[in-house]
Amino acid sequence: MAGLIEIFRKELADNFNSKRFLILFLLVYLAGAATIYIAAQNIRATVDDSTRYIFLNLFIVSGSNIPFSFPLFMSIFIPIIGIALGFDAVNSERTSGNLSRLLSQPIYRDNVINGKFLAGLVMIAILIVSIVTLVAGLGLRMIGVPPEAEEILRLCMFVIVSILYGAFWMSLAVLFSVVFNKAATSALASIAIWLFLFLFMGLIANLIAVTVVPINADSTVEQIASFDTLYRMINRISPGTLYVESIQAVLLPILGTSSPTMMMIGIYSGLKPTPLPLSQSLLIVWPQLVGLLALTAICFAIAYIKFMREEIRAT
């Protein structure tokens, strides 16, 4: 236990001292400030008197010409941060020759990987909590509308889900750092997976869904619905989809389903959306959250087992 705490503190100190994270932090804060500025510029256009959660809107609205919103920004930055935190967790220790030395001290082997993971998690948490509170503070200053209790709860949920998402990418990167001996290889592998999921997953899901359920301009609502279901089922292989769906439900209380397409169909057919209570929103995203958690756990477990069984040889 003492070993875990020591390693955790050392890793944390490393992170805080590294230029890598200084740059990353600054980048995130700047981008966050830009998004909040854009949001504050455009929030008047999106809010009408029927809008109940004005403060939450601050986190949703995007620019009118620039489709850049806070969730989009987060869904791009969090993977980068997670990967940056994890990709050289184990292999850098190994190549630098520190691992043998470290493990010859009276600590359990898993202390190393756990300590590193925890420190990374704390970094992600600090980053996300600070950026959300900063945005909230700046937003409050700019729009002058205080959040309701439920909005605060929803923002907390947003923070938790975001941390979870970061944890997933970090555990994936940690896994690669155990599998690949070169930090560059593991970084490339992580980024490749991220890019693939980010750029091509939707394309592939669309392709498969279209071949299975062909739709066109005069398809019935049922056909569109089944297409949409299939499309999203496939898309959910990507943790990014799980994250986006979760934060949509959390930040948009009005969303009665995790499918924006179905929601639009509902609105066109005359259903007026009413905001759901938080518990209902959570119920909707429960599967997504569990999915994210499971993916994180699987990646970490593989990394953990691999690391525990591996031979520690100074090469």
């Binding site: 020591e6 001292n17 630098s96 020759g97 520190n98 043998s100 030395r101 010859s104 100074a314």
Partner: peptide
């Protein structure tokens, strides 16, 4: 144990490296 190819944390000083080892030993 002193491994064959020994390495330290390059961005820490000699003292800090030893301190870390010491703390890991309680």
């Amino acid at each position: 144990y002193m491994p064959e190819k020994i390495g330290f944390y390059d961005d820490l000083t000699a003292r800090e490296n030893l301190e870390y080892t010491g703390r890991l030993n309680g």
